[in-house]
């Protein structure tokens, strides 16, 4: 206990820093949330003020939900994000396992090749991707988005997961081989459960850019049936007039699904971040 008391100042400084960072991070979200529940005048006159009985107004939400297609947009975003995460995790983990477990010619080169994807933005290839999608008839389908996002997420996934997989004990995998487990069983039953925290980390890092992306939905899938939430919200932003109530309401609504996904992964994620510290 004496040790804890001695570093009290240090602890409080650390907490002060963390709390200020948390406030700075949460503030824009907070602002979006409170303003989404105010009337238009109040948003502009007193953006910092909490909604009062006089200024409280859910007109933004009525507009967004009354738009009718918003449920579809949400569904599209959700399908695209979940499917892309699943594919990124599956293929990323398999590639990472192969790179970290097997010695084969070109192993290092292959690892570098996959890692280069982290540094080169996929958007540079937009034109070629669009041509490809047109040629394969995938324009205006969710499949197009899922494919692009999977490609976008895999490099980082391979990079992070192969580092983690190197730490899984060779003896354990060898014990599995002697007990007659196939390489697939070793991967799915022994290795994956042990790198679960890393998988959660990758899932969160993959999820957020996909959910927020405007670029590829706009280019590859702008049709009414395949619009995502981010793209759907754009109809309220006009060149001359912007329906701020609706934009803020749409953004507020868009936060919730990510929040749910995040909570699903967060327990694992925290274990992933602190795994070095406690083990």
């Amino acid at each position: 206990m004496s040790k804890a008391r001695a570093s009290l100042t240090r602890t409080s400084l650390v907490h002060l820093a963390l709390i200020s960072y948390a406030i700075i991070s949460v503030f824009p979200v907070f602002l979006t949330l409170i303003n989404s529940m105010k009337d238009r005048n109040a948003i502009f006159r007193n953006p910092m003020q909490l909604p009062s009985p006089k200024t409280f107004d859910l007109v933004g939400y009525y507009t967004v939900l009354g738009q009718g297609d918003f449920a579809t947009y949400f569904q599209n975003s959700f399908i695209v994000t979940v499917a892309a995460i699943a594919l990124v995790l599956l293929f990323g983990a398999m590639a990472a396992f192969a790179l970290s477990e097997y010695r084969f010619r070109g192993n290092t080169l292959m690892g570098l090749y996959l890692a280069i994807g982290i540094m080169i933005p996929i958007r540079l290839g937009t034109v070629a991707i669009l041509q490809g999608m047109v040629a394969t008839g995938l324009v205006n389908t969710l499949t197009a988005l899922i494919l692009v996002y999977t490609a976008q997420g895999i490099p980082l996934a391979v990079f992070i997961l192969s580092e983690f997989m190197r730490t899984v004990s060779d003896d354990l995998k060898n014990a599995g081989r002697i007990d007659g487990l196939s390489e697939y069983s070793i991967f799915f039953r022994l290795v994956l459960p042990l790198v679960r925290p890393a998988m959660a980390t990758v899932a969160v890092f993959t999820m957020i850019p996909i959910w927020n992306d405007l670029w590829f939905p706009l280019i590859l899938a702008p049709s009414e049936a395949t619009k995502t939430v981010t793209l759907g919200s754009q109809i309220f932003i006009g060149q001359f007039v912007t329906n701020w109530n609706a934009v803020l309401a749409a953004l507020s609504l868009a936060i919730f699904p990510v929040l749910v996904l995040y909570l699903v992964f967060s327990r694992q994620l925290i274990r992933g971040i602190t795994s070095g510290a406690v083990k």
Partner: peptide, 17 residues
């Protein structure tokens, strides 16, 4: 390995967690 009729005990135990 599984078909060689051997069993191995490892230094790190290597039990399935």
């Amino acid at each position: 390995p599984a078909k060689r009729g051997i069993a191995m005990v490892f230094q790190s135990y290597a039990l399935y967690p």
